[in-house]
Amino acid sequence: MTDITPYQVLPDDAPAAVYARPRLLMAGTALASAAVAMGFLALIVHYVSERAAVIQTGEVWLPNGVTIPLTQPNFMGLTLAFSVISVWWSVASIRDNERANSYAAFALTFLFGFAYISQTAYLLTIMEMEILASERAMLIYAVIGTHIVLTLVAMGYLIVMLLRTMGGEFSPSYFEGVRSSAMFWTVIVVLYSVLWYAIYITK
């Protein structure tokens, strides 16, 4: 049996460790989230200014025959609010080294995400609004559709981080990936609150 001490495992001429400041992924995610938010808010600003211009002429904003019920948007908001709790639960679980809880929290967040998308699809169905009908319908679909796409991207990010968690990459001493994906998810939920007010409440 060879006598290897921990100090002999690494050769003396091994390259230096790659150095990185902490929270690198957090910084990158924060910047990417800011860029995403700017793009989404630009769509909202366009929607609001278009709506104001139409209302100023004395016309009604929503296309003829289209109504937006409040029940679904409110429940969608509630669903996403719960998802924020579950996504930060996954972060707290990793921090506390409770892996089973973390997987459960990830699963719950996906469930809430799918529920949100499903409710949006149902809402669009009962709104009975043709995308080809008018500029207004197109704008509403553009804003809602963009948010759905962003939600799917956030879910993809969460899946990557779940797989990395399952691979043992994150631990109580390093869980930056999980935290950054939770931050991006939270930004998406905050953006929903803007959408909720601009489209579903003001109609």
Binding site: V36, M38, G39, M138
Partner: peptide, 20 residues
């Protein structure tokens, strides 16, 4: 990265207008 996404939003609307 704060201002170019606004241009992308405009391009998205242009895409939808011409396409749909």
């Amino acid at each position: 990265l704060f201002s170019l996404p606004i241009l992308m939003a405009e391009l998205l609307l242009a895409y939808l207008r011409v396409r749909y």
